[in-house]
Design a protein around this nucleic acid. Sequence first.
DNA 1: TTCGAAAAGGAAACCGGTGTCAAAACTTTT
DNA 2: AAAAGTTTTGACACCGGTTTCCTTTTCGAA
Lengths: 340, 340
Amino acid sequence: MAKSERQPTINDVARVAGVSKKTVSRVINRSPLLKADTREKVEAAIRELAYVPNPQARALALRRNFLIGLLHDNPNAQTVLNVQEGVLDAIRDTDFALVVRPVDRHSPRMLDDIRDFLEKQRLFGVLILPPVSENDALAALCRELGCGYVRMGSAQLDQGENLVMSNDRDAVGRAVDYLVEQGHQRIGLICGPDGFRSALERREGFKAAMKRHGLDVPAEMIAEGSYTFESGIAAAERLLAASPRPTAIFASNDEMAAGALHVARREGMAVPDDLSLVGFDDSPIAAHIWPPMTTVRWPIRAMAKAAAMKLIDPLEAGAQPSQFLSDLVERSSVARIEGA
Amino acid sequence: MAKSERQPTINDVARVAGVSKKTVSRVINRSPLLKADTREKVEAAIRELAYVPNPQARALALRRNFLIGLLHDNPNAQTVLNVQEGVLDAIRDTDFALVVRPVDRHSPRMLDDIRDFLEKQRLFGVLILPPVSENDALAALCRELGCGYVRMGSAQLDQGENLVMSNDRDAVGRAVDYLVEQGHQRIGLICGPDGFRSALERREGFKAAMKRHGLDVPAEMIAEGSYTFESGIAAAERLLAASPRPTAIFASNDEMAAGALHVARREGMAVPDDLSLVGFDDSPIAAHIWPPMTTVRWPIRAMAKAAAMKLIDPLEAGAQPSQFLSDLVERSSVARIEGA
DNA sequence: TTCGAAAAGGAAACCGGTGTCAAAACTTTT
DNA sequence: AAAAGTTTTGACACCGGTTTCCTTTTCGAA
């Protein structure tokens, strides 16, 4: 039994099956040039010994490993977890595993830290989540290190290679259309922080849609937040201090929309009767607050799955940037305004 | 330049430094028996070539890798992310990396899936999050496979080895004490699902504390949920259908407490004036709903860090189960009842 | 039956590190 | 100056796979 502590190796299998280790390797790798009875003999030995190939040895011999990294600095827990689930969807039943690596956007050493990480781990490739995915220097670093990468984003980034994206500009436009259809004309925007591509896209999508409807967007109807609940509170306070008040607010993510709801309630305004609210992401908080919030569903899990597949098998997944569509989820935070 | 595509190896360093590869290995591993000038020569070569050891080769030679797995099936995104951050706190500046693996508690194949995963990846060890950490068969599986593991939990589990825990029974007791101090006597409990150790601990902690105060816990004052927002709604509906109604509800996690808040509002009850609410976890939702919710802060990030350290270096971290303390975070969801 | 080509399988080197153990290079002692 | 002891270094095998290249086997055609 002392020996049984050791995991069986390919040599053990070869000995038991009475073949060379190369033949065992052929069986494992599904080589087609094998006689059926040889294959069966080897497979029987594999079962008997409960042999599982050593991934580290494989990685060494193949000069590549089976680890996918996830680089993220997203403030939203649910988004990050959805991405993790999406990647898992893609690598289920493969040999790949997912290595996570939160990064600190505000650290001056961020790129150096990531460089160390990539050099040390020699990952097969990395998936990069927004907002850090919008950092072109990071993509350049990956190229320099020869590390595969796929970026997830809210719009076309640089040449659009290695990219899986949604079209937030369009999606926000549809949200604005909806508010206008419900009779709203004075609509406030809580946008994301300067420097986030998603913030830019959502803001420009908002402005473009308003313009299309012939509506004005005065400066006091735009307030910037940082994608957190607290920043949503501050931004909503500024918006609701304007006169006349907006009848509706679009927030660039659900957390900030929840913050706006918080302020409205504190100020004694009823939602949606006194103030309509639309968020973005369809994260759980949108459904869990009261009233349940109308929001834009951002198909982040499917995007993550597609991104992982593109990383693992770029040819099969298609080299073109994949675009995903967002849609509006109507719940109860928007009221129809009559006589506007 | 063709050659430069290849990462430099230990052999390249040895050649440049004019020493044997073993000597380079000694430098990398900080062996003390090296002459200073040899060390410097090698370090210069390492810098010159920008050499970084290949982790796969190291893993093969050492017969162990530097990957820590995280097994989780926690319904709460923030909890999972906090744990990931905690683990990162522990492995920062080490060679370790974190591999995540969500599991499906409801799948009959869960254990087989995990077995495949562990056999395939040969991780250094795994951290197991509640609720799946409460599964003794999983711990047995790890032992069988010779895979290191540390469980995180809400109380003493089995022999208490490989365990980092909080004491939820106590923590809930303090929450009940607080409600009683505020004058509440008819207090409802939304407990977690049968089979979760944390649910059991929190329920028993509740009952024990009530008994200590000489208060009754009739059956209609206990409703079971499944730690989700929706289940919190259903449970709160049952509790509020009782007559007389409870003046306060303690929920075993914040999500369910948020569900209860949702129901209260729908029923036209004011929180906290008509109904006081206390949650558990101190997840972001607790601070983000209105009114901000009083809850028990569960120090999950610190627990995760401790668990990872115990996994990496059991001797230094201490073999004893580490216990962490939870404390009550007073916010605005509890009102004082006069004349009770 | 013999020959040749194709198919199947094996020996040995290799991937890039670490462990063992002995040799080499210094010190110190006599 | 030689012997002995100590420190430092290197040669070589090994971890468990894959790759290269060559040999053996099989099988159809001559």
